[in-house]
């Protein structure tokens, strides 16, 4: 039983990290139809920014500096995403394949730049000392950092959902996901919503990058690739453009991955792809996706 609790909570923690990567991908795709291969780069930019501020500015590691690094990483990821959107993506307006291709190019160039500057060896991200503690849940000893990942994702989910639900820009985004041409025809500036979505997605990915750096005990430019692919899988399983779908799929995939890796070591990734194939064969639009998208 205690193993069950431990694996479940660890799986939810991993799912929380998946959600941070996938939420932005899903919104960007849902609103703009852009398959954003540069999203893994947003994660790495956030992670390195968090690393920079924790080692060069704060120089100590406590709860507040780590929270500061998370927010700083998020803002850096968001600003980088905004730059990418303004510089290259808007120039290929409505040409979806070219937009996807150009994000591949951005990912290559940014990845090579970061590798050239920092090398590919993982750099240790300073974390508060309580990160190595465990708490007792039932009879299980659960690493306490898992709760931070879960908490951060819940807060981010609430913030993103509230922005989408209660603000004017959120209204435009939701309307744009439904029918972008109509929103534009009504004289509403959809471009602004594009930028907002890129910033929010970049923020989530950048914040996720700092947490992934803590989770993997190191920050390296190489982490963009694998996390991007997990993000894609989560988005496809959850349904494009659906924030709730991404959250649900991220949880499902995190938990399934951890259970598989416990009972059949090394097979977690394989089972995830199997799950993806099963979802596609039975529900091609994803768990919470709309038909015909």
């Amino acid at each position: 039983m205690d193993t069950f609790i431990l694996i479940t909570i660890t799986g939810i923690g991993l799912g929380a990290l998946f959600f941070l990567v996938a939420s932005g991908l899903s919104l960007i795709y849902g609103l703009m139809g852009v398959l954003n291969f540069a999203h893994g780069t947003f994660l790495v930019v956030g992670a390195f920014s968090g690393l920079w501020i924790s080692t060069k500015v704060f120089a100590t590691a406590n709860t507040w500096t780590f929270l500061g690094a998370m927010v700083f990483g998020g803002i850096a990821g968001g600003i980088f995403a905004l730059i990418v959107e303004r510089l290259v993506i808007t120039r290929l307006y409505e040409r979806h394949i070219e937009q996807a291709l150009v994000t591949v190019g951005v990912a290559l160039v940014a990845g090579a730049t970061l590798s050239g500057w920092f090398g590919n060896d993982p750099r240790l991200l300073p974390t508060p000392h309580w990160f190595i503690n465990t708490v007792t849940v039932g009879k299980a000893f659960v690493p306490v950092d898992r709760f931070l990942y879960i908490g951060a994702s819940i807060v981010l989910y609430i913030v993103l959902a509230s922005i989408l639900r209660f603000t004017r820009i959120g209204l435009i985004i939701r309307a744009g996901v439904e029918n972008r041409a109509m929103v534009g025809a009504l004289g509403i500036n959809v471009r602004l919503a594009f930028s907002a979505v890129f910033f929010m997605g970049g923020f989530a990915a950048g914040l996720g990058g700092v947490l992934v750096g803590a989770y993997q005990n190191g920050v390296t430019p190489l982490m963009s690739g694998s996390w991007l692919i997990y993000g894609f899988i989560v988005v496809v399983v959850g349904g494009m453009g659906s924030l709730g779908g991404s959250a649900l799929a991220a949880l499902l995939i995190g938990v399934v991955d951890q259970f598989t890796n416990y009972y059949m070591p090394g097979l977690g990734d394989f089972v995830i792809v199997f799950l993806l194939a099963a979802v596609l064969l039975t529900r091609p639009q994803g768990l919470l996706g709309k038909v015909g998208r």
């Binding site: 951005v106 160039v109 090579a112």
Partner: peptide, 27 residues
Amino acid sequence: PKIISGPLSEPAFILGLLFIFIVMFAP
């Protein structure tokens, strides 16, 4: 300086820039 030579020493940097250029300006 390393800030320039680092990226330039990665083949992906030059090829990626070329790729972006072709997609955007020379389809």
